[in-house]
Design a protein around this nucleic acid. Structure first.
Lengths: 232, 232
DNA sequence: ATTATCTATAGATCTATAGATAATGC
DNA sequence: ATTATCTATAGATCTATAGATAATGC
């Protein structure tokens, strides 16, 4: 994809300037406008995923939600699939970074797992729109290369290797953890009063027990202090 | 919906005979043919849900999968939604009955929960097409009024009331259990060799720990003998 | 002059229905 | 004669693109 873009620019005898390179900051007003339009599409896609009607929305609905002209869609994406893929990756990338920042310096797998899960579940309070994205995406998140899933899998496997976690199948355990996280976020969305913020620590505690940590230790690890909420 | 049907028959001056009443056995060849066509649609819908593309399939695809003429669809269902609703209910009803038969006579909530979950997870081996239906439906199963979800919720709450289960939020716990079940079935589908049948008991054991049963008791309950597999 | 956005539209689907055909009831 | 199924099709919706318009670069 990237190589196609470069080829096209070179064929037109145009240098690949910093302003048009992917990921570089836009340097002029035209590039900034283009970036804004693209971002409006991505944001609309995230909202649609959050509403649980991701790929089922038509391109017309997407451009209306983004408040841009219909045809502009194709200036930025070749298909709905590509847009939703991009939108998901963007959220998952930030989610993963948030986890990594919070866990920096911690080495115990159980602690890293617990903290990652609590940070993620707290998104329901600290970043409700991200919480809705998670519930909208559902268990598909398990197949994504970003966010909590790959990190928690790594931690579960490390805990198994260290002999802390007695559960045999890390993938199945991870799926249960994801189910618990999504269940908590869903319930909070439909019935906020029934889900106090302490539910987050209870979820982590229950998941640690599922992984095989002794109940007393599960309680202790799930109650360790949390770092201050970091910006998204 | 049912009242609409009755009204239509009466308006046409036709009695609502046993052969045309919903749920009654078809008495003549015409009714049997009609029932076969309807069942072909329902079966196709179940297969499409299993393939993970439930409502996204077009009516044309559905009728082709059912090997019936396109227009016949509307003789039986008013919309795709109605067909998929019917198809889901049918599978969930049988699934629930299978659980109820297996658990008849057992009163301990932890044992009923464990057995229900093991019966459900074993569907991946005993009835693979039902296992695929479950993975295709995903966490939406939590909102359905049949199958495992309402029964497991009842058992978790009973276990809480009896003081066996220490977990506070039954809904969140149930969602984690569902995630574990779906994770096990998915992994078995993609990698059968990695998922021996003993994984089913390990899943039940882990879920019982999550609910707050002491690890030793969780192991014991998850290893209780299973009744013989009953027919679907 | 160049580039992005917007509007309009052709062509491809999809849904719902009408009318023809086939199967069964009596 | 009655009923269900099938084929054909009108109308609605959706995608992808062409060409006009607006914004920016130089």
């Amino acid at each position: 994809m990237r190589s196609e873009l470069i080829t096209r620019f070179q064929k037109e005898g145009r240098e690949l300037t910093a302003s048009s390179a992917i990921g570089a900051l836009p340097t002029n007003r035209l590039d900034r406008r283009k970036a804004r339009t693209r971002q409006a599409l991505v944001d609309a896609a995230v909202r649609l995923i959050a509403e649980g009607r991701g790929e089922r929305a038509s391109i017309q609905e997407i451009t209306e939600a983004a408040d841009i002209g219909f045809g502009s869609f194709y200036n930025h994406f070749e298909s709905k699939e590509q847009l939703f893929e991009t939108a998901s990756s963007e959220v998952l990338e930030r989610w993963g970074q948030m986890i990594d920042r919070a866990c920096a310096g911690i080495s115990d797998p159980a602690e890293v797992f617990s903290l990652s899960l609590r940070i993620s579940a707290r998104l329901g309070w600290t970043h409700p729109e991200v919480g809705r994205f998670i519930t909208g995406a559902g268990l598909d998140l398990l197949d994504a290369p970003g966010g909590l899933a790959p990190r928690a899998l790594r931690d579960i496997q490390a805990g198994q290797a260290a002999g802390q976690f007695t559960v045999r199948d890390a993938d199945v355990a991870l799926s249960a953890v994801a189910g618990g996280l999504i269940g908590l976020l869903r319930k909070r969305q439909s019935d906020p009063a029934l889900v106090p913020e302490t539910s987050v620590d209870e979820l982590a505690e229950a998941c640690l027990r599922l992984l095989g940590l002794p109940p007393a230790k599960a309680r202790r690890v799930a109650g360790l202090p949390l770092p201050a909420t970091e910006p998204w």
